[in-house]
Amino acid sequence: MLDCKHNTELLSQSYDRPLTLREKMAMRMHLLMCRGCRNFEKQLAFIRKAARELPRKL
């Protein structure tokens, strides 16, 4: 079973490389049971969006 620390690594890497099917399944299973990681997932998406918006906000 994936722990939060490793799950956040996979969540982050999903922005940098395609995850394997096995990794995706493990990540989804963990997310179903972990509210902290679900919040982290949403926040990562926000961070990407904000960073890419930044050049227009300078």
Binding site: D3, N39, K42
Partner: peptide, 18 residues
């Protein structure tokens, strides 16, 4: 940020209206 067992030391809370 994480405990020895790999769980969040303090799990992320919801962000209000990002």
């Amino acid at each position: 940020l994480f405990r020895q067992n790999g769980r969040w030391a303090s799990p992320p809370q919801n962000w209000n209206e990002p």
